[in-house]
Amino acid sequence: MPLFDIMLPYYGDVALMQGAVRSVLAQSDPDWRLTVIDDGREPGVPEWFAALGDDRVRYQRNPENLGITRNFQKCVDLLELERAVIMGCDDLLHPHYLATVRSLLERHPGIGMVQPGVEVIDGTGLVVDGLADKVKKRLYAPSVDGSRVMGGEELAASVLRGNWLYFPSICWRSDAVKPVNFRDGLSVIQDLALVIDLLQAGEQMVVDTEVVFQYRRHAISESSVQAFSGTRFTEAERYFHEVAERLDAQGWPKAARAARFHSASRLHALTMLPGALRRGGVDGVRTLASHAFSSGSSTG
C-alpha cells in the first residue's frame, strides 16, 4: 500500500483545483494516493477526473453540500494510509514535496506532524510576501536552521501567540489525527485547535525550512470576509478562553497565558478595523475593536 493519503476537499474554482491535482501527479515520489471530495456542483468535474485514467486518484462528489468543516472531517474519516496531507484545493505541491517529507519521516519515525517550508502565492500564482506572512516569519515563527523538533508547551505557546503554521502543507500521522478530529462549532480556527489538541495528547512536530509547498493567499477569502464582519474573532475569542482553561489544567501556564493574550489575533483584528469602517458595518467594527483592545485577562 502507498504511504501517503493526500486528501483534497474541493469547492470553488475548477482551474485552480486542476492545478492542485496536477501538482500531486507530478510528485517525484510515487508512493501516494489522492482522494478528492467534491462539495460543489461545477459542471465537467467528474468527467475531468474520469479522463485522468490514474488509479491512484479517487474522486467522489457529495450528494449534498457539507460545508468546509464537515467536508474536512469527511477527509479525516476516509484516511486509511499511514501518513496524511489535507491540502487546499488551490494550493500547489513542489515536485519534491513528498520526497522531502519522506526523508524527514525517516529521520524522525513516529513523529505526529511535519511542517515543511512554505512559500505564499497570490491568485495568479505569483510568489508574494505580504504583511501577514512577514509578521508570521519575523515575529512568531521559531528560529529554525534546517529542521527542528518541537512539541509540548513550547510549541503550544508559540502557535497560540501567533499561528505561523500553514495547515494545508502539514503531513500528519493518520492514527494521531483520526481520534482527535476537528472541533464542532469552529470554522476559521479549526486548524489551530487540531494542532493544540494533538500537542496536548503528546504529539510532536518537525519544522523544516526547505520550501516544498505553495500556499495560495487570495485578496478576499472566506476568513477575511468573516474578519470584516467580526465573525472570525467572535469564534477566536471563545476558543482562546476555552483552551486557556484546559492548558492551565494541564500545567502549561505559559501556553495558557499565550492563549489569553492571543497577540497575533488581536493585531489582526486591529489591521481589519479600517476596512470594516469603510464598509460601514457597525457590529463588525464593535466586535473587531473589542477583540483588538481586550486585556487578554478574561477567563469566561
Rank of each mutant, 00 (worst) to 15 (best):
R161F: 12
G162Y: 10
R183S: 12
S263D: 14
V120C: 07
V36Q: 05
P95L: 04
R216A: 01
S297G: 10
V211K: 05
R148W: 08
I86W: 00
I196Y: 00
L78N: 03
V120M: 08
V188P: 01
I37K: 03
F233Q: 02
S147G: 11
V195S: 12
M7P: 00
T271F: 14
S187Q: 09
A26Y: 07
A258G: 02
R22W: 04
L273W: 05
A276T: 09
T271C: 11
D175L: 06
E64H: 14
R22H: 14
I86K: 04
L98E: 14
P95N: 05
G53T: 03
D122E: 09
P116Q: 00
E42K: 02
L3M: 13
D39A: 13
L79Y: 01
P46W: 06
P109L: 10
G146W: 01
G44R: 03
N181F: 14
L52P: 01
L78A: 07
S297P: 05
V14P: 15
S290A: 15
D5I: 12
L199V: 02
G117F: 15
P168Y: 08
E106G: 09
G152E: 12
H94Y: 15
K136Y: 11
V21Q: 04
G123W: 03
R41H: 13
S265F: 09
V127W: 00
V188C: 11
A50C: 09
S174K: 00
V128R: 05
V285P: 10
S28V: 14
A141V: 01
A176W: 14
R286G: 11
G151L: 00
L247V: 11
R246Q: 13
V225Y: 04
R238N: 03
R61L: 08
L25N: 00
R161A: 11
I170K: 03
S263E: 15
H94E: 15
D175Y: 11
G281Q: 00
L277D: 06
L198R: 06
R238I: 00
W172E: 10
H262L: 05
D39P: 01
G40W: 04
I196N: 04
V118Y: 11
L8Q: 05
E154H: 07
D145H: 08
A193R: 01
R56V: 06
Q18R: 09
L8F: 00
D77V: 00
W48M: 04
R138Q: 11
Y11H: 09
V159I: 15
V243C: 13
